[in-house]
Design a binder for these strands. Structure first.
Lengths: 126, 126
DNA sequence: TTGACATATTCCTATATAGGAATATATAGT
DNA sequence: ACTATATATTCCTATATAGGAATATGTCAA
């Protein structure tokens, strides 16, 4: 048997590097096919084909605007991939630590601010 | 040109459903090839081939234990995929809202604490 | 060493690509 | 209607599969 179709699910669609590039670009907003051609530096038919795959899998949506067709990312389509990778989240010890550390650092910062505010209000009392 | 090799990166390796199943199973701990054969219900050579792909891409590690070879997931290999999906995190409205709401609620709580602390310090001046 | 078990590898084939080239379709402007 | 522009589709080909079948490799045990 050959590989599963690129249109069989998001995982297969996103396996192609160009399609990831497209999605990365579309993450910043709606773009025309021509925009993508310029951005990716590949020929227009290739871009259209990739967009076709992404559209069939529900990773992008398209709408006409004059002569152009504007594509936008459908972030909901990416979520299943995100959820899947989360299966391993509990094994990322450092990341957990880092997130917690950042939260605690922020809390400390807030404490410092609080102290400073109190002092200021007691001296200059605007 | 054909599709990128399954061993070219984690995205391509994980595009195959069987390989995802393997990783899901290995997320619960080290397993032998025979375990995987039972679990997946596919023939041993297929499992070995899938494991070979996963190993080359760095998604699993193997070690011998007697006659058996034990495979374990390498969660670090999955992180790049997770990071990539995070590009769209800010577009997941509910999650974004939830995160922002929690941050703002926390900020309000901090404000309340600050006010209370200031009042306390002006009355009981410890 | 021989045999039994566990895993990997090789050979085979049908299948689905990705990109190039050429062409079709659709829309706007004149 | 005609032309220019924007995008999609078709045809082509080299390539890499996934799984089946058969076989090789490696390890223990007696």
């Amino acid at each position: 048997m050959a590989r599963a179709a690129t249109t069989s699910d998001g995982f297969n669609a996103v396996a192609e590097p160009r399609r990831r590039e497209i999605l990365e670009f579309l993450a910043s907003g709606e773009r025309s096919v021509a925009d993508l051609v310029v951005r990716l530096g590949i020929r227009q038919p290739s871009v259209s084909k990739h967009l076709g795959v992404l559209r069939r899998v529900g990773l992008v949506r398209a709408r006409r605007h004059g002569r152009h067709i504007l594509y936008e990312a459908n972030p909901e389509g990416i979520r299943p991939l995100h959820e899947w990778t989360n299966i391993f989240a509990r094994l990322w010890a450092h990341q957990l630590l880092r997130v917690r550390e950042r939260a605690e650092e922020k809390a400390r910062q807030v404490e410092r601010d609080k102290l400073r505010d109190c002092k200021n209000s007691s001296t200059e009392e605007a």
